[in-house]
Simulated scan of single mutants.
Amino acid sequence: MASYYNNLPVILVSAKSTTAAKTLISEIIDNVPPDYEGDGHVWRIVNKYYTADVRLHPHADDEELQIDEHLIEAHIIYLEEDECSAETAARRAAGPGAARAARAGGPRLVGGRGLEGGRGLGGGRLASWAAHARYELADDGLPRLRDALHAHLWPRAPAPPHDARSSPDTTSSEESWSEWVSAGGSAGAEDEESAGEDVERAEEFAAALGALPAAAAHARLQALTGHERRARLQRAEHLVAAFCRALGHRPDAC
């Protein structure tokens, strides 16, 4: 149980203080695994495409990183009303762990009290910096932060305990593919091994579907460097491979 939660993908939240970062984290988390009793910030993302568990980690300015950098998948820069500037955002984007989020290809967002409705944009300099650094300004507030994180295809973590996957508390407004299969929707449900494979394929297919919005948004980026073009191609190849695995085919045969 502990190893599962300790190895979840991490959303790094950078702010001027741990308290400020934790405030944002508490507002983002709207669902937690029902069996989770740890002292970390675990969020169960539930939508019509997939269910995924992630960890949010607060990180204050000038603080050493206290987690394994390789777990970082996304980065949020949190700005308070008195610090909505390109300089502050750039400093946090250069902080520990931020580069790892860029390499992972996960969401990179700038949010804060002073951004809602376009306020606090520093005469456009912050917006210009964000466009250049490839961070998204979440000026619609918390809903946009959550939407961007929901749209990301999170990497597969070690399988959670059975009760963590099937608890009624994790049910979304539409039944997930895995719940449908577990309830007997699979023609091979009488065979436990076959049913397990069906569940895994259904989850992979749903996760691949969930990645499409983020992939489409990434494809619209212009003026990509050579490195970014290679990263974009790799992202597309991974997405195709995910669909192949979900359909029961070898990725090299697709």
Rank of each mutant, 00 (worst) to 15 (best):
R119I: 08
A127G: 12
R108H: 08
E83I: 05
V181E: 01
A94V: 01
S176T: 10
G106D: 06
R55A: 11
L79R: 03
D39Q: 08
G106H: 06
R91Q: 13
R201G: 02
R113T: 15
R44W: 01
A187H: 10
S178G: 07
T19V: 14
A21G: 04
G185A: 08
L12G: 03
W154E: 07
T170M: 14
S173F: 12
A206K: 00
N6Y: 00
P251V: 04
E175T: 10
I77D: 01
A151P: 04
P161S: 10
G95W: 06
R229C: 10
R103I: 05
G124V: 15
V54I: 15
G105T: 07
R100F: 08
E203Q: 13
A207Q: 03
C84W: 01
S172R: 04
G188V: 13
W43F: 04
P143I: 05
Y4C: 02
E37D: 14
E228Y: 00
R235E: 10
W129S: 06
D30I: 08
H59N: 06
R125I: 11
A241F: 01
E87N: 11
A89M: 08
D147N: 09
A52R: 15
E237Q: 12
G97P: 13
L221T: 05
L115R: 10
A207F: 00
H75F: 07
P155V: 03
S85Q: 09
L115N: 07
D82Q: 14
A102Q: 14
I76A: 12
F205R: 11
T23H: 11
D82G: 10
A151F: 02
H57D: 01
W154L: 09
A211M: 03
A202Y: 07
F243D: 01
N31V: 00
P158G: 11
E73D: 02
F205Q: 04
N6E: 12
E175M: 14
R201A: 07
P33F: 05
L56G: 02
L209P: 01
